[in-house]
Design a protein around this nucleic acid. Sequence first.
DNA 1: AGTGTTTGCGTGAACGTTCACGTCGTTGGG
DNA 2: CCCAACGACGTGAACGTTCACGCAAACACT
Lengths: 335, 335
Amino acid sequence: MASSSRESRIRRATILDVAAAAGVSRQTVTRAMNDMPGISPATRERVQQLAAELGYSPSRFAKGLVQGARISLGLAIPDLTNPYFPAFASSVVEEATQRGWNVVVDDFGHGSGSGLDAVARLAPQVDALIGYLGACSSDAQAMMGRRPVVVLDYPAGQAAGGISFDYSYGAGLALQRFMSEGRRRIGYLDSDQEGTATTRGAAVAAAAAAAGIELIVGQCLDSAPAAREALRALLEEDGGIDGLLVFNDLMAAGAMKGLHDAGRAVPEDCAVIGMDGIPLGELLTPELTTLALDLRAVGRSAVDLVDNLLSGAIKASSDEASLILKHQLVLRQSA
Amino acid sequence: MASSSRESRIRRATILDVAAAAGVSRQTVTRAMNDMPGISPATRERVQQLAAELGYSPSRFAKGLVQGARISLGLAIPDLTNPYFPAFASSVVEEATQRGWNVVVDDFGHGSGSGLDAVARLAPQVDALIGYLGACSSDAQAMMGRRPVVVLDYPAGQAAGGISFDYSYGAGLALQRFMSEGRRRIGYLDSDQEGTATTRGAAVAAAAAAAGIELIVGQCLDSAPAAREALRALLEEDGGIDGLLVFNDLMAAGAMKGLHDAGRAVPEDCAVIGMDGIPLGELLTPELTTLALDLRAVGRSAVDLVDNLLSGAIKASSDEASLILKHQLVLRQSA
DNA sequence: AGTGTTTGCGTGAACGTTCACGTCGTTGGG
DNA sequence: CCCAACGACGTGAACGTTCACGCAAACACT
């Protein structure tokens, strides 16, 4: 068992300790540590040696305080276990490090609290926040004060600045594909958001209604095993579906497993379309047809938005602070 | 195009601005912001209101400076795109937040430099470092000074404190499985580490030699498409393999695709065993047999180690600073 | 009326750096 | 021999908080 850090006030060596040990002043130590001019090579060497021995490293707080903050970006992720989020996080990290920012990641999937807790942890640490915050987006805004918050996939009605996705468009593409292949009994497997339909679910339902399709809707937790399990119920309830749209690719993977368990062939008996476009889809058998997002573009847009908000080029209240991205139907084998 | 942050020195409101606006002192503002006692509800409300209007939020640097650092942990990840690493990162984040630490993640997979660059970015920001650093582990030690560094999967010979894996044991399990099913022409697909064999590769080769097996070795970049491609070469070169061990699960997924491309049935014609034990394996068809790591345990061990190093309970030079974890063979369908 | 206690708020100091100067001694040119 | 220039180093101030006090007014209790 590790010693819990109740009183883990680490007494670190300060610049004064090093200065005293070397018999020089603070400033000389600073010069030695930061490779600044105005110091003799001999002294520099000696100070660096001593600093290493004492285990000295400059306090990032003191440094940050005097040098003016380096921008750091908070990234709140619901579940690092779902491959979509790392893929997204990866593009954000890339964009951010290109700008010399650093990224603090917090994930709140493993039952360690809600998105709000993550924001609470992040808020005092960062200059801006990007995250899939769902319902807590307005609270997040409050906690961050005037600092930029970019919410992805925010629920309709919540007017936070951020990036959302045109699910109506995407759902249309998927349904169109199903219908062009003569499939009429379409199912949709939604993520379980405490009983209420998700933004995605609502858009899919609307698109189905518009197309005159009677949609068979199932719900389950956002994970592959849950989807696999949920499909059993869905198939029992109304056995005849020949097309299935799923909340995301990970759940779609589980759903395909569930279809396989039930002895249904994909895509012959039932076609499957996922959402997200994560690389995982290509590794499945059959390979997953999906409504793909350009993940690089999503990350880039989010960081761009933060950048513009930070520099004042865009006001948080303006229309430009909201972006809507579209999916693209990537046809593979499953539909 | 976003305005590049060349001169992005953000002039934020300070506690004094708020104090002046409210006609009170610093300390009263502090009391209002931190919900401390010794302030009237009316004043608290007014100050909070004003703070929100001015967009004031306390400087994390000043706060950190005076309150004594809150521990923050750097996590250097080679490639967030490989599902193994998020899974690992997730467990580290969970353990760390339980201790009240926060985690700064940097990934260096997308061509934005080597692991050394990531360490350089992280080093001034964190109190300890955990990472898959491979060859740069000793440089990382140097940059971090006396602060704890826990390297995972470090190359043999490098005596950094950290966590490594008993690949000989794991390779033994896999080979034993192959042999018990009468498979004798075993292949191994290694990750391409600039030509040299990886630690894993060396252990597998040794285990094969010990078992009197002639190993057919292939190499490719660490990604599923690369593995899929590489398998073509491997099969052409020596077509008769009936068992394949792969560097990790992601590459194993690609390899199974490659076998499928070549018309080989898994596991009938050729059995496949991966390494890592990521959830992805269960979603493949056939489901992937793998040398699984207990990912929660890996994350927990790494954070425990940092905790003990930080508290001084363990010296970095001691034997206790090195841990060796074993794989477990999880039998599914592919072997 | 005298004496503690509470409530509400303000002030000096400290946290560990870096920045902008200042100082001292040596060197070199005229 | 004087002055300027330069190299090597030191000193006061500032960054924005919080902590540990201090202090005055209001209130309670004997």
